[in-house]
Every structure is written in structure tokens, then in C-alpha cells.
């Protein structure tokens, strides 16, 4: 069993590319932390729920977008099928949540 850990290391060009990508992901991470803190602060300040709930949902959607597009690379080329599948899932998810809540509330 050959240990090939050190064979074929990427060239400087690709190493730099990976580094640039990593910096973008670090910025994404910092933004996600900031959004999380904002969300917790919104709740701690006791904001009125008609403002707080849409704001919290918006913050969550943006964070999840970061997660999908940056951490999971959906912004990169060759992610048409993943987008189709995840948006298909999200579409069905919205209908599911609406159906279950509306059935009980009305």
C-alpha cells in the first residue's frame, strides 16, 4: 500500500487559487457569525415580534445562502444539478410547511 500523500502536489497557481478561495470562505464565516450575533441580539432587545420574526427569518435565509453558495460551492461551475435538486427540495419544503401549519391553524 503506497503512501502517496506527497505525490502530485498542486502547482503554485492552483495553490494560490485555493488560498484565494479560502480567504473568501473565511469572510463568509465571519459574516455568518455576525449575522448569528445580530439574530440573538434582536431577541435579547425584546423587539416587537411583527418586526423580529421576519428579520430573524431573513437573517437565517442569508446565512443558509452563504452556506450553500460558498461552503458547499454552489456558486462554482458544474453545480446545475445540485441547484436543481436543492431548489426542488426547498420548493417542496415550503409547500409542506404551509400545508402543515395552515391545516392546524385554520
Amino acid at each position: 500500500m503506497a503512501n502517496n500523500t506527497n505525490t502530485g502536489n498542486p502547482d503554485t497557481f492552483h495553490k494560490q487559487k485555493h488560498k484565494d478561495e479560502m480567504i473568501k470562505q473565511l469572510i463568509t464565516f465571519v459574516l455568518m457569525i455576525v449575522f448569528t450575533i445580530i439574530a440573538f441580539v434582536v431577541v435579547l432587545t425584546g423587539m416587537d415580534k411583527f418586526f423580529a420574526i421576519p428579520l430573524l427569518l431573513l437573517l437565517a435565509v442569508v446565512q443558509v445562502g452563504f452556506q450553500f453558495y460558498y461552503f458547499m460551492h454552489m456558486k462554482d461551475k458544474g453545480h446545475e444539478m445540485p441547484s436543481l435538486m436543492i431548489y426542488g427540495g426547498i420548493g417542496a419544503a415550503i409547500v409542506t410547511v404551509l400545508a402543515l401549519t395552515l391545516i392546524i391553524w385554520w
Binding site: M85, I86, G88, G89, I90, A92, I94, T96
Partner: peptide, 8 residues
């Protein structure tokens, strides 16, 4: 995609 629906 399926997991999304399940959690939904």
C-alpha cells in the same frame, strides 16, 4: 434535496 423535505 430529500432531506430538506423531511426536515420541512
Amino acid at each position: 434535496g430529500g432531506e430538506t423535505v423531511l426536515f420541512a
